[in-house]
Write a protein that binds this DNA or RNA. Sequence first.
DNA 1: GTCTATAGAAGGATAGAC
DNA 2: GTCTATCCTTCTATAGAC
Lengths: 187, 187
Amino acid sequence: MKPVVVLDKIMETAERLFYEQGYNLTGINQIIEEANISKPSLYNHFKSKNDLLLAYLDQSYSKWFEDLATFTADMTTPFDRLIGVFDYRISRQIRTNYNGCAFVKISSEVSHKDIEVFERTQKFKNAIKAYVVDLVKQLNRPKHKLLTDEEFAENVFLLLEGGLIMAKIIKSTQPLEDAKDIVRKLV
Amino acid sequence: MKPVVVLDKIMETAERLFYEQGYNLTGINQIIEEANISKPSLYNHFKSKNDLLLAYLDQSYSKWFEDLATFTADMTTPFDRLIGVFDYRISRQIRTNYNGCAFVKISSEVSHKDIEVFERTQKFKNAIKAYVVDLVKQLNRPKHKLLTDEEFAENVFLLLEGGLIMAKIIKSTQPLEDAKDIVRKLV
DNA sequence: GTCTATAGAAGGATAGAC
DNA sequence: GTCTATCCTTCTATAGAC
């Protein structure tokens, strides 16, 4: 069981440091020190620092949707679940002291030619958008609205992304709260 | 005149490399090499790499609004100028191969405790939002609309930010084009 | 104010013992 | 599979000559 524990310690520490400090500002030396393991132990599980980064992103993807499911478990109507995504992000930003989206952060840290990172970021954002599109369909909005379902869903999604970025920048939930109010009025 | 030329070479090279490669992935050595100057020359103008970063951000702020003014010089109505901001961002993203916002990039690269960087990012985003708010006021929108002027302006601004982030991630102008269509329908 | 040369620290990654 | 010890590169920054 010890190898599993070592791997868990690596992943826990890498997740925390990569997200809080950033990928490039986190050295291998700090990871092994805070995880209380040796350097060759890390390279036994991951062939490079970049390999560890990809594992971190894959884990972040899974945990994000798992935590969303837990957060919105009590919400029954499509509308409540749509607003729930905003509240989910608000709760996360408060907890992480407005550190923003892990995938956006990494995408700003690596070369734009790093295809593996961008594919994972695209997959993550596409999944969030698909989640929003699906909820909007279930809303059964009247046909006479200014925006079609597709346009409304796109607006909601971009409010989620723009609101998150601005929450990080001004260190406040206000942009996400404003976004939520706009969604309530436009639905 | 030679000192000025040296300073210009530093700023040009730093701007290009910081934006294209990222701040942390750009070393002092690469900057002086591509600027064709020596290391002490750089440290004569800037006391540290972080000092150069702040000068880069201040220059980016000025140039962004100067270029916006040029880009929208022919646009007369408030509505055209509002849509013009989207087209301005679209043109910039095409030109930079979808590298996103320079301030958002840097904010993801430095510690969240780097107050000087975050203050400049806040100032930049606040100025864009103020620009949008001002244009929306000039629109003279009917009072019976779903969204107040304040809410509509916030929606437009968050569409600009969300659209830009997504344009960078999926390497396409589509999110910004979609955002523009939504603005046209909601105005 | 610009240069050559170098200091001193930290980066990622590996050899070889156990 | 984990460890100690070490390799080589790159990093930011500076000393001292001109």
